[in-house]
Amino acid sequence: METNNKIYFYPLWLRIWHGINALGIILLIITGYTMQAGNESSLLGFNTSVNIHNISGLTVALNYLLFVIGNMITNNGKFYIVKPKNFLKRPMKQAQYYAWGMFRGKDKPYPLSEKRKFNPLQKYAYIGVMYIFVPAVIITGFALLFPEIIIETVYNVSGIMLTAVLHSVMGFFVFLFLIIHLYISSIGKNPLGNYKSIINGWHHV
């Protein structure tokens, strides 16, 4: 669907999924850090943080199923497929545009269209987050929720400890992604354009 330079990029299910995911992940990051600091006097107490973290974690995990199923039954999934040709050259070109080209008034190397929802760099970042980091956080988070299923020791290192470290390292990368994602979203025709798009579904090209 394309009208007046507007493309209906984000169908309702995707926007609902994105909203839940965003809210859930923000809560998970805040409570995750509160728990790591373990400070009773912090805004959120330890126990409250644990409860919020568990509930948000479960919500984000279930929501992830919506993302996977949605991608399977709609054509949204195809936007996450990487072409092997110029595997590294394409995202590099986009990075060069962000770092240099956009300030020199150069044209976008990969303008978005009905067929190209994400530029290559964006696509790589989304694949990394949605198919590597988030699933890893979900799996390790599930294991930490039921620690008795974790292997006791791996070469004499506590299995729980390894799982916990992996969980927070992966969570850290999701947080890093979130910051960069929020910033890059402000690049567009106007700084708020992309934020509006994910609410109303229409993307300005």
């Binding site: 373990g38 070469y155 004499n156 729980i160 400890m161 470290v165 850290f172």
Partner: peptide
Amino acid sequence: LRTVISNQSYVIGTHQV
């Protein structure tokens, strides 16, 4: 390293490393 890290497995998250 393994003994250093396995000692503090009660501390949550990466802060134990």
